[in-house]
Simulated assay, not measured.
Amino acid sequence: MGPYWKPDMPSTPSDWIDVRILSCPAASEFLGLLDDPDVGGVWEDGESLHLYWPTLRWSSERLDRVRLTLRRLRGEEQLLPEIRIDSLPHQDWNRQWAESVKPLRIGRRIVIRPSWEAAEVQADHVEIVLDPKQAFGTGHHATTRMLLEWLETLALDGATVLDVGTGSGILAMVALRLGAVRAVGFDDDPVAVECAQDYARDNRFGEELTLGCGTLARGERFDLVLANLDAATLTSLTDELAVATGRRLLVSGLLVDQRGEIAEGFARAGLYQGGVRELDGWTAVEFLRADACDGPES
């Protein structure tokens, strides 16, 4: 399981409503639009998104709000994903949550694990200790996994990296472990940035990693730019991302049918499409500068 944040389930007995959304697109954007302070926890389980409300706070109005938020994301033309609602008895949520989070192996060398679970690693492995908190990007979701696997294939020795919408900071941290000399990650969510900064300290990163809250501004170019963002945000940042890209841009967070429009926008901004990867209905795309000497990676 991949929690977006640990369920804040109280220790006093209480029953819960589990609202499961099948094949929820742009989960992080959905949570922001929903903006419901009574949600007790949110979990990603494969292709499903689970939201938990205390039984006493659940209502048909809240279900309508969930559907309305999905409609805002999907648009009027697309069908809404299936929603399943179950009642859960009171349990020891903290114990169950800890037991469910296990070391995650991605690609050939990347290992992401919680602090309470040891993992067998080799000398050439990249190990990141990450206790899931209220920040997107644990490596479980297909959009993050594709970029992590892609990073492992690149020659990053001496590279500079920009991670736009850094979330937990996992992409920037792995890039550094794979040979990059400097990484900058930023997010417009101060809670995510605080989590990412904690992770950086836990994993003993220093001045080579800069994490902060802000937005993308025209200025410095980076050898590699990473952007795990929803389609609407990528569209709004196309020009800024192109300017920041010195050699290669890797984007994720797109549904397969959104790739064409995004590629057209980056082509107008001076970047051409390289490699493409797909996983679980999501796609990640490589864009290269026209004057970059490297060919596309696949």
Rank of each mutant, 00 (worst) to 15 (best):
L88A: 03
S236N: 12
D8H: 00
E76M: 08
V164I: 14
E99F: 02
P190Q: 04
V191Q: 06
Y52R: 02
A135Y: 06
A231F: 05
L154W: 07
D64H: 12
E99V: 08
P54I: 02
P103A: 09
L148K: 09
R177G: 03
E127S: 14
D230K: 13
D280F: 04
P296I: 05
V129R: 09
V193F: 01
L70W: 00
R67M: 08
S115H: 04
S23Q: 15
L80D: 15
S59M: 06
S298M: 08
D45Q: 13
I128W: 02
R182P: 07
G253A: 09
A26V: 08
E264L: 06
A142I: 01
G214C: 13
I17F: 02
E99N: 12
D198G: 13
G219L: 13
E82K: 11
I112S: 00
R204D: 04
V126S: 08
A200I: 06
E240V: 12
G260L: 13
T238M: 11
V243F: 14
G75R: 08
F205L: 10
T166I: 04
I85W: 10
E194F: 05
W282Q: 06
G219Q: 10
C195I: 07
D15H: 15
R268E: 15
A244C: 04
G139T: 07
T215Y: 10
S11N: 15
A123D: 10
E120T: 06
M9T: 06
D163V: 06
G270H: 04
E207W: 14
V225Q: 10
L241N: 07
I112E: 10
L226Y: 09
E120V: 13
R204P: 12
I17W: 02
T235F: 09
V19M: 01
R247E: 10
G270P: 09
Y52K: 05
D131M: 02
A263Q: 03
G246V: 03
L211E: 07
